[in-house]
């Protein structure tokens, strides 16, 4: 039985200028420990909303259903508690934090999470060593550590910075929200390698993407097709290839 991530009948809405707008309309999804799942779907199907609801953004009102993670009611936790429990969201559009030194930010985050997990905090030397190893793996310059978080970063640099954070925070469940957008093929390979090397019995991920291309590098165990706030089809990695060739139409028609 799966006691890792279990989402049942999840419904959520957002306040759109005073009128509530239903976005998630009953999501059922289970991701067992150690598996990587992908979600594909047309724009506006609710993919990003799902990632925000799972990581705790409070603009969304959950109106029904449940989500449990490692046996805990995920939806009852604050975002920082979810992070401590092992949830990580790689943002589609990471925000800028002017004046906040990237290395300081990373170290503050790493130590906040380590404290919450009952681990020793990293001192400056140990942290620098850890972060240098990761920036090397992701082909990032040390200069990016000295800049303000995401300020003046190119699209590709922002995505790499997200993957850097993910690797340092060592989540057990990562959500990658269109991490491939804005990446050239070399950057895509590097980012995919950053994710793949975390793969193991204790790491699961939900990869949200528009493109088959990313899934050539991060091969998922399962692929889910999402439309209009629901998962309308689930299958193996081959589903991504079918979608790439034939588009969403046949899935949408089959679901209708």
């Amino acid at each position: 039985m799966n006691d890792f991530l279990k989402i049942q009948g999840l419904e959520a809405r957002i306040d759109a200028d005073g009128t509530p707008k239903e976005i998630l309309k009953g999501i059922d999804l289970e991701i067992p420990k150690g598996e990587i799942h992908a979600i594909m779907g047309p724009n506006g199907s609710g993919k990003s909303t799902l990632s925000y609801v799972l990581s705790g953004r409070d603009d969304y009102e959950v109106t029904g259903g449940s989500a449990t993670f490692k046996g805990q009611d995920l939806l009852a936790l604050d975002p920082e508690e979810r992070a401590a429990l092992g949830v990580f969201l790689a943002f589609q559009s990471p925000v800028e934090l002017p004046g906040v030194n990237n290395a300081n930010f990373l170290r503050t985050a790493v130590n906040a999470v380590r404290r919450a997990r009952g681990e020793d905090e990293l001192d400056a030397v140990a942290f620098l060593k850890a972060v240098r190893a990761e920036t090397k793996r992701l082909s990032m310059s040390d200069e990016m550590l000295k800049r303000a978080v995401n300020v003046g970063f190119s699209g590709g640099e922002k995505k790499r910075n997200e993957v850097l954070q993910m690797r340092l925070l060592q989540p057990s469940f990562a959500i990658l929200d269109e991490t491939d957008s804005g990446l050239d093929i070399d950057a895509l390979r590097i980012v995919a390698d950053g994710v793949n090397s975390l793969r193991g019995p204790d790491f699961s991920a939900l990869v949200i993407t528009h493109h088959q291309r990313l899934l050539d590098y991060i091969v998922p165990d399962r692929v889910h097709v999402m439309a209009k706030g629901k998962i309308i089809f689930s299958g193996g990695p081959e589903v991504a290839k079918t979608l790439e060739k034939q588009g969403y139409t046949q899935f949408l028609e089959a679901a209708a």
Binding site: E80, A109, A112
Partner: peptide, 12 residues
């Protein structure tokens, strides 16, 4: 957005 970004990284 900024607050949520930081909190999702474990900061109170």
């Amino acid at each position: 957005d900024q607050l949520f970004y930081c909190r999702s990284r474990g900061l109170s």
